[in-house]
Amino acid sequence: MRAFTYERASSVEAAAQAAAGNREAKFIAGGTNLLDLMKLEIETPTHLIDVNGLGLDTIEATPDGGLRIGAMVRNTDLASHEVVRRDYGLLSRALLAGASGQLRNKATTSGNLLQRTRCPYFYDTNQPCNKRTPGSGCSAIGGYSRQNAVVGVSDACIATHPSDMAIAMRALDAVVETVKPDGSKRAIPMADFHRLPGDTPHIETVLEQGEFITAVVLPAPIGGKQIYRKVRDRASYAFALISVGAIIQPDGTGRVAVGGVAHKPWRVEAAEAELPKGARATASILLADARPTEQNRFKVDLVERALGAAIAEAKG
């Protein structure tokens, strides 16, 4: 871990400004991923801006019947919130499927969205990785790729986004609210927030330098059976091989977002139109452009099977 200076931000604006002029600055919230990466010198900020004291830790109702979730709301608190449990069960379920109790107590809403991939080559600084060291190559292609992405991949990167929470946020059409260093605000739909790897896998979101997430807003609840099916080798405390976040309405229509398969939460609206026909029809469109490796080809079948199970569960 490189040496860094440390400050506690006094306001959102001050935080954004402190980061604006310093490309080597990073915000730190829960720290559960950033510190992990700093120890390995995958992240090497020389200045940390502690944003925990900014009061962004509340969950409030919005005028249009949704919820505004402060960026610093801890995963445990979000998953435990009465309204989230009742009206956004998918979000609660996704959060609870992730990490461990200890980590959820620290991890924040915005930090979760900004998690970096768990691709083992990204984590090993001796190995080429375009995401860590642009232009160095992708070791996972042709290497150990069982966990890696099958869709939306590029020749530069087949990493996945590891978040469970983000899958629910994507299915729920959440919107990420930010403040830029100049004080301007914007609202970024989850659909646009994460990027596909393309030729620039090191750029993972549309956030600009110094742009600071203040909240994630959920639209009014849409009801339906909300199911988060995470599939993994061990029963807990493991990243998803794949996960399916589904909201199924009584008439069989619904939404589905899939995790563990792409560089971002994977949702294809055209595929959702097929939901009433079942998992096979839906999955065939959802993963129509899949380019799996030999080692992760199973994910394509697994998505269809897990979605089938989710639909069956929704029908009860």
């Binding site: 440390y6 510190l35 200890q102 620290k106």
Partner: peptide, 10 residues
Amino acid sequence: VNSCLSLAVM
């Protein structure tokens, strides 16, 4: 919490 993933200064 996991004390390994938290800075003392925080």
